[in-house]
Simulated assay, not measured.
Amino acid sequence: MVDQLVDETGRIVVGVDGSAGSEAALRWALAHARQMNASVEAVAAWQYPDMYGYSWGYLPSMPDGGDFSASAEKVLEEAVARVKDQVSTTTAVTTRVIEGHPAQVLMEASRDARVLVVGTRGHGAFAGVLLGSVSQHCVQHAPCPVVVVPRSDAGDAPVAG
């Protein structure tokens, strides 16, 4: 399926949260953007923490200054800069920070995309073979083809959905 995407044109949407998996996904998107004659749009999602924990004395960690949107934007910009420093590309990357659950944000952002690219975050030997909840949702519900890129240290090939 990935080979079928190469000759298409359009926009590649990639979910970026600053994790190693999302940076691997961004590297994949940049590497294939030129072949696909596509642009790359890196999307970060943020949301306010659930409130039910407050009644038990739990306070969620807050980003610097308490501004979730600014924190997500900073993480996104730093991740894009890091990846662009690692790869040789002239492909421009547009960025968007959107409030909402990551799976829903990516579904909406990829509505008219050629392909949606997400990474995995695996947590150990067993969990590493499973898709995370966001990538699983994207594979099952995205309005376009989805490529799931494993972390670069996993050594696996991308999975197309």
Rank of each mutant, 00 (worst) to 15 (best):
V149K: 10
T94H: 14
G132K: 07
A42D: 08
I98L: 09
R114C: 05
S22G: 06
P145Q: 01
A31G: 13
G122R: 03
Q136K: 11
G128N: 06
G65Q: 12
W46E: 01
S152I: 06
A103K: 02
K74R: 15
T90S: 12
D156S: 14
T120S: 08
A45E: 03
T89Y: 04
A142N: 00
V2M: 08
Y58K: 07
E8C: 06
V93T: 03
A42T: 09
D156T: 13
Q104W: 05
S39P: 06
R34F: 07
A38G: 12
W28Q: 04
F126R: 12
V115T: 00
V83I: 01
R96M: 09
G122F: 06
M51T: 11
G128H: 04
F126H: 12
D3N: 14
I12L: 08
V97E: 00
F126A: 15
V40H: 08
L131W: 05
L26G: 02
L59K: 14
A38H: 11
Y58A: 13
D7V: 12
M107T: 13
Q47S: 14
G57I: 01
A72R: 00
V75Y: 04
A42I: 09
Q140S: 04
R121L: 09
G119K: 01
L30M: 01
V6D: 08
G53T: 02
S110D: 04
V97K: 02
A72T: 01
V6C: 10
T95L: 03
R151K: 14
H141Q: 06
L76W: 03
T120W: 03
W28I: 07
M107K: 13
A24D: 00
D67P: 09
R11N: 10
V115I: 01
L5D: 11
G155P: 02
A160Y: 10
G21W: 02
S39V: 09
G18F: 05
H137E: 13
V118A: 09
G10A: 11
T91M: 13
Q104L: 11
A127I: 05
P49G: 15
G119M: 00
V129M: 15
E8M: 08
V159L: 15
P63C: 07
G65I: 07
S22W: 01
D153R: 11
Q136H: 15
T94P: 12
L131V: 07
H141G: 03
P158G: 07
A81I: 08
P102Q: 02
C144R: 00
D17T: 10
E108L: 09
N37V: 08
T9Q: 15
S152R: 11
D64R: 14
L5T: 10
M107L: 15
V16S: 02
V14E: 00
E23Q: 14
